[in-house]
Amino acid sequence: MTYGAGIAKGLMVTMRNLFRKPTTVQYPEERLPQHPRFRGEDFVWYEERCTGCASCAKYCPLGIIKIVTSPSGTQTQEGEKYRLEVFDIDIARCMFCGLCVEACPYDALHMGSGFERGRYARNDLTIHIDELKSAPKRPSTWFRPQLEAKGYDPFSGETVPWQGVSRASKNDPTKEEMDSRWVERQ
């Protein structure tokens, strides 16, 4: 083999690539598109749907979800909810495996789509219940096929109310009907 031919061949590839569009993006200004299924850190939690069963806390491999509940009334009836006092997700230790979302039987907990939650102190990384309540509800479609079926995109800016994330059909009783049933029986 004569020396030089290979180098010329390699330079041909270099020349071809020289006139390509660059594949890099200037990150803070430009962003790569994310898929709606992206498992991000700003968890979306629907207070109305959550019953305080703590399935998510039990299924978490790291045990980073802390839930403290108390009965909502003096007489707790069947079908009535617990009142949640503490719902802490320690993002500093979270690995975003999504098992908590997979575990939730009431579709109350969803993954978010963000990845830029940097803080100066480690304690600030915990998401508390107040933040979960007030955060905009833009859930990721990960493990929520009902959202994917609607063609919902968390990056479009629209928020989803708690009624909109249901897997249930329209024939199911509404919350008011359920409440009235209990009142009638009492």
């Binding site: 898929h35 299924r37 992206f38 498992r39 975003f96 999504g98 993954m111 990960w142």
Partner: peptide
Amino acid sequence: FEMLCGARIT
């Protein structure tokens, strides 16, 4: 992979 499962590495 991000389309399949929402994550890229883990």
